[in-house]
Amino acid sequence: MNWDIQRRETWLYEANPSLKLIVLVMLFFAVLFIHNPNVLINVSLALFVLFCFGTGYPANVLFWLFLPFFLVFVSTASSMMMFGEGTTTWFRWGLIHVTAESFWRGVHIGFRALALGLLGLIFSLTTRPVPLFYSLMQQLRLKPKYAYSFLAAVRLLPIMLEEFQAIRYALTVRGVPNKGVLSKMKRYAIPLLSQSIRRAQRIAVAMEAKQFSGSGRRTFYYEIGFGKYDIWLVALFAALMFAAYYVGVHYPYISISDVR
């Protein structure tokens, strides 16, 4: 996504978007099947380092981007710690019941949430939408009518934001009372959605006239292929996972090797 933020485009931006998506989805499932907290902590740390130095964003932006992930980490971990089941009780107060098992399980799923979040953030920070959809069409054979619809919809976003502002001003000028969550939601949602649907239908007519819906062979303005950065990408993540696994198994931080 293009925010107006100064950033340095690192080599991760140059890797093939489809390949990057596939690699990261595979890592996603790999992380789901890690049950050793030592390995998972290493994976999270490695991804955090990549997030800090691989995405090319300035430190203050990275901080604000990371903050919600930290909150997810804390909330995921704490709810499991306080209300999970276990036999070795550490602390009990009313419904809150902290046990050794639930504590480590909480730490584990906290780090898991963190690792999964970082995977997605690394992807969305280093991938521009236009090359992504062109690559999906060329490498993964996504039908052009889907890909171009996505791209057109992304282009409509700024118009929707403008409309949102316009509705807000209009409601203020008319002195519409600013209360009632449900009625307020409808006051915004109905005009925004109906206008968007009308606009989408008009654009669809234009796109159909220009054969964007055709199923024949087509050429592309941007040709997206593979290069040396794709090899780097695969090598980097393979090395990262292997190192995390090796260090986690041979030099553990805690003696638990399976939290299940």
Binding site: A152, L157, M160, L193, S196, A200, E208
Partner: peptide
Amino acid sequence: MEVKTKGLKLADILTTIVIAIVFGII
């Protein structure tokens, strides 16, 4: 003229995606 394609038409797809992107923000 456009041949009849199977599955969703472009108009359906685009409208669905536009609605979905609005909800993506939400």
